[in-house]
Design a protein around this nucleic acid. Structure first.
Lengths: 252, 252
DNA sequence: CGGATTTTTGACCAATGTCAAGACCGGTGG
DNA sequence: CCACCGGTCTTGACATTGGTCAAAAATCCG
């Protein structure tokens, strides 16, 4: 499957968005469907190309934007995984989301007009930077892009609300694994062999659990034969059973 | 202050959006600022007027839209209070939000293209209905409207994420009261004398607590002299102290 | 006035967090 | 190659918050 070897073990599937040439856009690009789909307006496409800026090679732990910085752009992940997080007044870290290639980071900054969170690279990350004013202007000429932005914004509302339910640790973790699998699958990677780019602590802060609880639940899932855990590699052995656990969250 | 008398007690401040005439829009209208602000495009404004539809008099408990219905429109509350909720597979009700006059309901339906929740009137409610396809089309001609939609969508992401933190019951309730006060204040009503249109159970389902817990915490807040509770009327006696409690949530 | 609903209060319990210690890497330098 | 070091992860014992169940009180509304 063409895995690379990094730090001494087989690297996980690491989807990367194809750059494309001047007129064909990144195949995994946030706006790929829009451009490829309808009769592509060559001029508008060139504009889109102009306003996008490839930014490469964020090292693990480095920051793409920080809380409080003036909002000027949204970012599409090209490769790697990004987390957004905020640190509340008494030091608790709250992870807002994880972003895989093709997903958009920074949509929650439009309203406050400054980033309300940090965006941190979890591994080696490349992104595309879209100037938001320029993108919005373009969106008035390309309804498909406007629509896509509306869709993504709306989707994020749903995802955030999902997480907010008072679900049990089991439900949360099951839904997390299934959800991650689905998102990998959307990008053409197996939905049942996951590599977690984030630490247990990150997962815990995302799911609003203690890191110890994450560890314990994963252990139990493995004892029950639902999954096989090897460090940050997780194989989903019984997707149906796991989905049953996650049902209250996923199947609203 | 011109309160009406309803069911035997002094009615709370009940902001209602002014209808305006054909060319001046509802003063509390979701898009009021856009129209009033920049050099109003008369033709576009007429279009906006055409695509909006005033829908009146939802009685308490009646439904504006239901889970699963095809998405076709968003709604701006004109008067009264709306809650959105979903009922998960084993019957737990999850309240997603409360909407005051001037706020938009249904933005979370753009992505799934069907409403992912019910919208229910808590008291007597009037709304404006905006056909979404028409609104989106108009937004391509009126950048201000597009921008306003982006802003509102983005804001909802932030609000949903806020709620998702693992905060204590005290923090949640304090933030809830302060937040509601602020939203009333935005509409020109006092921020410290609230009337809750929703039941304790609704608040609990919104904050992911048990109704009993809501009751107990309100009691304690009152014992501590932070608020005065009289049924569904709440007076905030010590806003600063309450804000201190809510700080981890509000001041991220 | 009277039944229904909502709210409050109390007693108890369970899920999850906290604290602490130890295991398990992966990386580094001798 | 091996020993050590630092961080992450796991495991256990215990504490605590908030949920559950039940019943009484208050409120609503015909």
């Amino acid at each position: 499957m063409g895995h690379d070897v990094v730090h001494g073990r087989i690297a996980p599937p690491n989807p990367i968005a194809d750059d494309g040439d001047d007129y064909r856009f990144c195949s995994t690009c946030a706006f790929g469907a829009v451009c490829v789909g309808s009769g592509v307006d060559k001029i508008a496409l060139r504009d889109l190309h102009c306003l996008v800026e490839h930014v490469g090679n964020y090292r693990p732990g480095t920051t793409i934007f920080r809380t409080g910085e003036r909002f000027s752009a949204i970012y599409a992940v090209r490769s790697g995984t990004v987390k957004t997080r905020l640190v509340d007044i008494d030091g608790r870290e709250l992870v807002l989301g994880f972003y895989l290639p093709g997903e958009l980071v920074g949509l929650n900054a439009i309203h406050p007009e400054s980033y309300p969170c940090d965006a941190v690279a979890l591994d080696t990350v490349e992104v595309c930077r879209f100037s938001f004013p320029a993108l919005a202007t373009l969106a008035t000429r390309m309804p498909g892009i406007q629509q896509e932005l509306f869709r993504r914004l709306s989707k994020d509302i749903g995802n955030a609300a999902l997480l907010a339910g008072d679900y049990s640790a089991d439900e949360r973790l099951a839904a997390f694994l299934i959800g991650l699998g689905r998102r990998y699958a959307e990008r053409g990677f197996p939905a049942d062999t996951l590599h977690l780019a984030m630490s247990r602590g990150d997962i815990a802060n995302y799911l609003r659990l203690a890191a110890e609880t994450v560890s314990r639940v994963l252990r139990r899932f493995q004892d029950q034969g639902l999954i096989n855990v090897d460090g940050r590699d997780v194989a989903i052995a019984k997707p149906a059973a796991l989905f049953d656990l996650a049902r209250p969250i996923l199947q609203r």
